[in-house]
Structure formats: structure tokens, C-alpha cells
Nucleic acid binder design. Sequence first.
DNA 1: AGGAAGCGTAACCTGTAGGTTACGCTTCCT
DNA 2: AGGAAGCGTAACCTACAGGTTACGCTTCCT
Lengths: 117, 117
Amino acid sequence: MADPVRRQILELLLRGGPRPAGDVAERFAISRPAVSRHLRVLRRSGLVRDELVGRQRLYTLDPGPFEELVAWLGPFVRPSGWEHRLDALETEVYRTRRERRTRGDAGQGVTGQESTA
Amino acid sequence: MADPVRRQILELLLRGGPRPAGDVAERFAISRPAVSRHLRVLRRSGLVRDELVGRQRLYTLDPGPFEELVAWLGPFVRPSGWEHRLDALETEVYRTRRERRTRGDAGQGVTGQESTA
DNA sequence: AGGAAGCGTAACCTGTAGGTTACGCTTCCT
DNA sequence: AGGAAGCGTAACCTACAGGTTACGCTTCCT
């Protein structure tokens, strides 16, 4: 995930939702096999899942590893301003979610803009 | 930050607080200059700050870049389970913080275990 | 003053990440 | 059936990340 191309792929998948490999590849200046290998790395890292539909392979984001990373980063961002005891963040989030739900909140959807690339 | 050694250095700095370079170096099997360069990378990435005290150089974590990273990761971890509208996470956190403070909660500190390295 | 302590940098070597071209396998179309 | 579309993989090449040893500069001690 350190690689800039890989990050762009992830961002693309985030904005545009599931995309077939070729669709991803043609967005980059590098060759298609190169992108293909990047996708393989992402696959093996568990950051994306692939689903074969017909003769094309759709790639989707998998939030799992991202959550792990955020969890790892947590302690590093906390100690500064906050008072070292926000480990209950996730539970708080869940509480918030429940509250929102009961208040009846409309979902917004992920598929949004498609601008700067 | 992709490098495992670098991550270990960061974890060490997290657990043990500011440390001189040599103190960091002797925790690793690799040579001291190697660690020194890792520290330079971390310095240039802004992940750590250095302060010269006497003839030794103390390294400290800088939360800034970590926050950026978490911010970048945010959109990736949200879309799955939650209903796409947790952008108010930070404000929630602050609210939580206020609540905790008024309830009078003892801080725990960061310095904890010192085991597996 | 002068040696030791504490670090950083330079020069060098090697493994590997990431690019390219060539090739092979399915799946769809007519 | 057979060609085109859509992808992945293999083989190969090159640049760079990360390790080591050698060296130089301050700062402390006696």
C-alpha cells in the first residue's frame, strides 16, 4: 500500500465502486500487466476482493485491513491532544450509529463525484 | 512507513517515549548506521522530530502525519458496515471527550508493557 | 589537550519491487 | 467452429531500498 499507483487504484475503487481490471488499467499510463500485478498485490494483502463475472474480473474494496491499520494508528494519533483514554472509540462509534438509526437518518451512498482522478 | 523496522521504531517510541538514537539502535540486530538511516527517513517523513541534547539526539513522535493518514483511511473504513454518514466522527470524539472529562475519568498514560518488541 | 562516546554520512554491494514484452487460457459473439 | 475480448502469468531488465564497513564531526570527561 506504500506504492502510489496502488493507492490511486484504491481511491479509484473507492470513488467508482467495483470495477473490472481493464477498466482500472486504462486509467494509468503504465502497461496493463503492470496494473494487473498491482491488483494481485492488493488482492493478496486482502485490501480488495475479486469476483469473476463472465470473462472479466471485478475488483471491490475490502474494509477489513483498513480497519486494522486505523486500529494500529490509533495510539499514535491519540497521545497528543486527547487524554490518552479514547480506546472506547469504536464502541462510541457504534453507540452513535444506534442513535442515528433510531433518529432515522437517510443514507447518502458511496458513489459520488468523479472529478480530479 | 512500509518498512517493518521503521514500524518497530515507531512502536518503540510510542511505548518508551523520546529516546536517543543509540538507545533505539541497540534494540535491533542490524547495524547502527542502518538504524540511523531509518531514523532519517522517519525524520524526513515528519513522523518523528529530533532534538539535540548534548552529544546525543533525542527522537520524538510527531502525531501530525499519523492524523493525515487516518484521515485518508477514513473513507475506506466507513462505507462497509456503517451507514455512510459518520463524517461527524471527530466531533463525536470531542463530545465523548467532554463527557468523560465532566464525569471525571483518570488518565492511564501511554507507557505500558515492554515485552515482545 | 586529548581520548572516548555518540551520531550522522559516504561509498559500496545485493535483493527485490516494479516496469515491459510475449504468451496462454477462458469467455463471448456470429 | 473460430476469432476477438478480457485477464493473468512468466521471463527479463533496471532502479532503488536497505544492509555493511569506513570515516568524520561534536561533545563530554579527566
